[in-house]
Design a protein around this nucleic acid. Structure first.
Lengths: 376, 376
DNA sequence: CTGAAAGCGCTAACAA
DNA sequence: TTGTTAGCGCTTTCAG
């Protein structure tokens, strides 16, 4: 063990200054790359830094710069507070919880459930990938927060107000999510993934969902499908609504005013269930557009189980181009949503706003593209 | 917009003190719940806090307490640095965070791939769930970091040394991962998920993998299976090795000195491939133990495709009791690894160590349990 | 039980 | 170009 547990004796600017025979200010300058420092002195300082093993203290720096050099990555839902459990004024600190046997007692309400659902969807991993890819080179790392209850939301706002993070990247999973409004009302910088269901003056990044759905419809039609149905996502979230609308519009424009629709929840299971329904209503259908890949995978499974060949009997198109699309059997033809790029752009917008707070609220809309694989 | 953009005029202790007609010290006391404060004054202070909308400044607090009230959640690999791009002698220490223009050129090597893989496994989401469930009530939120290259590892160490986080929760994905050693060598507090492949003086939480494998073997045997094979995980990671060893030992003890083994990578695809191999070697097998659920799911798929009924013709047991186990068809009988609880315990150990740095290195081993479902 | 005062380590004027 | 000097907002002795 090499001492220096970041505890007490951690070297400070003062130490380095002394070692280099200059002032604190000078050391600070070279460390922060400020111009106008004699090259010779720069070298001396660098040596001193190396010798002393100096590392700048983030708290001290933040205190004066008023920036945390940190951002929060928030996954937010729309839930209310969990059933007002015990009113046992939480004794601030304290922990305890001798684990023991194993089985999770599932305390703390539905936190686990919310988070489990979040991670079950490949979407979130892609967002993190995009965010980290962009932020890490800038030396900043996201603080992960979940805001599925009103208390959790307050904590997010409070966290930001304390200056623990300079801003937030918010991924909203539900339409009625109050967080975006809470954040902007507090005057805190944030960028959303996807346009908020209710208008809020906040920057966001989104996809032209309708265009994507149009691409799917046109492809199905061009392929010769004539008895086409669709599995929609939740209609209370803009993405679900837009994908359905876009699909219907295009179908109508091409002489198919009526399209059978079954609703799903963006999960594989719900997609399978919807497919069953559709098959009942129209046993001879020859084309299906699912509003996301997970549902398309479920649909494919059901089609196979029902003796339909994909794509020979029924062509299937998904949406997102998530990992599930490529590993599906057959591989899914799908509409690509460049989640990683969008997440990176979201980060860029936030950093931009942080460096120039006067910057106006901006949105960036990405264009989807059709990815051709085997299912259609 | 309601002013107070956490920018300039944020109320400070001073403001609250003034409003309450007391000193800063007193306000600080009530805010931090220190005893010995006149109830009347306490009330007055609380009012003042409410009126002013005061929120303590985290940087200022950290500076004096020397604690960040934050921990890092690190997913680490064993990779080396990406292709030695530019040899631009890295300017010693320094941070400077010279932000660039913005646009992420998708550089930084295969970060995306590493992260994508991480999220593809249901394991990680469970770890996060357990960690957040435990940490959030204490008001602390994890900073997400990936340490798949040597540079990334250095950044993690540096991040901790800067005091940006008080300690680290490390989930290692590879055997040769140098991070645990790097961290302890720097005298920084950390807890690992799973025993390190190479001995390191560091606390960790782990599962009695061998016992789990024994449970699986015994169940298969008790069920009447006699031609049993196993799909192993990567043997360079302790979990993979132990699950195989435990299975083999138990089988041997019960008169089955030879067990066909096919290797997998803990992924569904590799499990499917392994199953194919096994079927070739021993077409009449009637029982399979897969070292994790994902591989078991792949195995089930292949078995079905090859006309075997599960569990009638072949019984299948998985490991982990991940979400995939329950949603598999048929639902998987599996050995449960209480990941969420283990992650919570890991957090508890770290917090414990942080509050009492003298605490000795500790490990907690959880016992697996057999979860009976339909596949065996 | 409360107030006064001394910093924590760093940056950013302002001088020199 | 470099050094001096104020603080940033908070906790924490140490008096009172």
């Amino acid at each position: 063990m090499t001492e220096d547990a970041r505890g007490v004796g951690a070297p400070t600017l003062e130490d380095v200054a002394k070692a280099a025979g200059v002032s604190r200010a000078t050391v600070s300058r070279v460390i922060n790359g400020v111009r106008n420092v004699d090259p010779v002195i720069q070298a001396a300082v660098r040596d001193a830094v190396a010798v002393t093993g100096y590392t700048p203290n983030r708290a001290a720096r933040s205190l004066v710069t008023r920036k945390a050099d940190s951002i929060a990555l928030v996954v937010s839902g729309a839930g209310d507070d969990p059933p007002p459990v015990a009113a046992t004024a939480a004794p601030a600190e304290a922990t305890g919880s001798r684990v023991g046997d194993g089985r999770s007692a599932g305390f703390d309400g539905g936190v686990g459930s919310f988070m489990t659902d979040v991670f079950a969807d490949p979407f979130f991993g892609r967002v993190v990938t995009g965010v980290v890819n962009f932020l890490r080179p800038q030396g900043i790392h996201p603080v992960l927060m979940f805001a599925e209850t009103s208390r959790a939301r307050d904590e997010v706002v409070s966290y930001l107000r304390q200056g623990s993070a300079d801003g937030a990247l918010v991924v909203s999973t539900h339409a009625e999510d109050p967080l975006p409004a809470l954040i902007t009302d507090a005057g805190l910088p944030a960028v959303l993934y996807a346009r908020p269901a209710r208008p809020v003056r906040i920057s966001y990044v989104d996809l032209a969902h309708q265009d994507g759905a149009r691409l799917a419809a046109e492809h199905l039609l061009a392929r010769g499908c004539r008895r086409i149905a669709t599995i929609a996502g939740p209609l209370d979230v803009p993405a679900g609504q837009d994908r359905l609308t876009g699909f219907r519009d295009t179908m109508a424009r091409h002489g198919h005013p009526y399209v059978p629709v079954a609703g799903g929840e963006f999960t594989e299971e719900s997609g399978a269930a919807a497919m069953e329904l559709l098959l009942t209503e129209q046993p001879d259908l020859d084309g299906v557009f699912a509003a996301n890949d997970l549902m398309a995978v479920g649909a494919c499974r059901v089609l196979r189980e029902r003796g339909r060949r994909v794509p020979d009997d029924v062509a299937v198109i998904g949406f997102d181009d998530s990992r599930a699309a490529a590993s599906c059997r057959p591989p899914l033809t799908t509409v690509r949503q460049p989640v990683e790029d969008m997440a990176a752009e979201m980060s860029r917008l936030l950093l931009d706003r942080l460096s120039r707070p006067d910057r106006p609220v901006t949105s960036v809309i990405f264009e989807p593209t059709l990815i051709l694989r085997a299912s259609a």
